[in-house]
Amino acid sequence: PDEFRDPLMDTLMTDPVRLPSGTIMDRSIILRHLLNSPTDPFNRQTLTESMLEPVPELKEQIQAWMREKQN
């Protein structure tokens, strides 16, 4: 489902985090971005790792969907 895909890389998220802007991304992708630029890739506001907020409900939904697909 589209809501499980990272908006920057269009890959399935495994550890979704919410940026201060409200955008949800995969943690590994935003951390890689932050190594090059300490900004939100969508609005260029300053962004640090400590500002990332886990989204455990979405992570659980993704994991359940993945388990379902394996069966």
Results as ranks from 00 to 15, higher is better:
R27M: 00
E53S: 07
S50F: 08
I62P: 08
M51A: 08
R27Q: 00
T46A: 13
P38L: 07
H33K: 03
R67Q: 09
L58E: 04
L35K: 15
Q63S: 14
G22C: 04
T48E: 13
R27L: 02
H33C: 09
R18I: 01
M66N: 11
L35H: 15
E49W: 06
M25C: 08
E60L: 12
N36M: 11
K69N: 15
N43Q: 08
L47M: 08
P1Q: 01
M9D: 12
D2F: 07
I29P: 01
E68H: 09
L52I: 04
D6W: 01
Q63N: 10
S21G: 10
K69F: 11
E53T: 12
P16T: 06
T11E: 03
P41A: 04
S21F: 03
P38Y: 06
Q70S: 11
K69E: 11
D10V: 02
G22M: 01
F4W: 08
G22H: 04
D15Q: 01
P56H: 10
I24A: 07
P1I: 07
T23I: 09
P54D: 04
R32W: 05
Q45H: 11
T48K: 10
W65L: 04
N43P: 02
D6F: 04
R44D: 10
T48A: 08
L19T: 03
V17N: 14
E68F: 09
A64W: 07
A64Y: 08
P1F: 09
S21N: 10
D40N: 04
M66Q: 13
N43V: 06
D15K: 01
F4K: 05
Q63G: 11
N71F: 14
E3K: 13
I62F: 04
T39M: 08
T23Q: 15
Q70G: 14
L8W: 06
R5W: 07
V55S: 05
M13E: 03
A64V: 12
R67K: 14
M51H: 09
E57V: 10
L31Y: 07
L58K: 10
G22T: 02
L8A: 05
P56K: 11
G22V: 01
L12V: 15
I30T: 02
T11V: 13
T46I: 10
E53V: 14
S28Q: 14
D15A: 03
A64N: 13
F4S: 03
P16M: 01
M25W: 02
I24F: 03
H33F: 05
R67L: 14
V17W: 00
F42M: 11
P20K: 04
L35T: 08
M25E: 06
R18F: 06
Q70T: 14
S37F: 07
M25A: 08
D6S: 00
A64E: 09
M66W: 14
E49C: 09
M51C: 13
L35I: 14
V55K: 04
H33I: 05
P1C: 03
S50Q: 13
D2I: 14
E68G: 08
Q61E: 11
M66G: 12
K69D: 10
D10G: 14
E57M: 11
S28C: 14
I24E: 09
D2A: 14
P41K: 02
L19P: 01
D2R: 14
Q61P: 10
M66A: 12
R44G: 15
Q63T: 11
L31H: 10
P41W: 00
L52G: 00
T46D: 12
R5E: 09
H33L: 06
E68Q: 14
V17K: 00
P38I: 04
E57L: 10
T46E: 13
E68A: 12
L58M: 07
Q63M: 10
N36W: 12
T39L: 09
P7M: 03
L58F: 04
L52K: 05
Q61C: 08
T46L: 14
E68T: 10
Q61G: 09
R32E: 15
F4C: 03
N71I: 15
L12Y: 05
V17C: 08
L34A: 01
Q45I: 07
R27A: 01
M25P: 04
L52T: 01
L52A: 01
Q61N: 15
I29C: 09
M9Q: 12
S21M: 02
V55M: 09
F4P: 07
L58W: 08
G22Y: 00
P16V: 02
F42L: 11
N71V: 15
S50V: 08
I30G: 01
P16K: 04
K69Y: 14
R18D: 08
P7N: 04
L8C: 08
F42W: 11
S28N: 13
E49S: 12
R44I: 00
S21P: 02
Q63W: 11
N43C: 03
V17S: 08
I29D: 04
Q45D: 11
L35S: 14
I29N: 10
N43L: 04
E57K: 11
I29H: 08
N71P: 15
N71E: 14
T14Y: 12
S37E: 12
P16D: 00
L19V: 03
E3M: 10
P20L: 02
S50N: 14
M51T: 09
I24L: 02
I62E: 08
P1A: 05
T11L: 05
P56I: 01
L47F: 02
R67N: 13
N71W: 15
I29L: 06
E68D: 11
S37M: 04
W65R: 09
F42V: 06
R18L: 05
E49Y: 08
I24D: 02
T11W: 03
A64P: 07
